[in-house]
Amino acid sequence: MSPHGNPEVPASSAGDVESSAAKVPAGPAGPASADSGSTSSVSTSSTSPTPDRSVWPLWEVFVRSSRGLSHVHAGSLHAPDAAMALRNARDLYTRRNEGVSIWVVPADAIAASDPDAKGSFFESPQGKDYRHATYYTKSEGVKHL
């Protein structure tokens, strides 16, 4: 059907989709039917076997919602380069004036703490209540303190 063709003529060939459509996607990788035979010789940095199927890198998007506030993580997206990542981020994460500034960061440039080291990595502040104002109770009731 053409994109602006007769709206919604119920397909006469509804039976074309075989019942395998009922299968759930979560199974092991089946033969992905990458049938767009067009092969360009574009090779983006990596060693992707089929150039037109090369995976665009993942970018993490940070949005500053208004001046004076810090950039906050909004989500992620795929894009071939930083310029496209910025444009896509604008369209994807600021359709309603959610931002005045956007950062995009290659996801693999982010170093993250190891979640398995939860305990030990964040151990140091524990038992150091005296780093909080609430630790000091004797001044309770004293004004402006």
Binding site: M1, E8, P10, S19, S20, A21, S36, S40
Partner: peptide, 26 residues
């Protein structure tokens, strides 16, 4: 199970859109 009034049409349109967009991605 894929036997509704528009299943085939919806998938066909999605396939078309994906193929038509190939040159943009490239």
């Amino acid at each position: 199970a894929g036997r509704g009034p528009c299943n085939a049409q919806r998938l066909e349109r999605r396939r078309e859109a994906h193929d038509d967009g190939a040159w943009v991605r490239e």
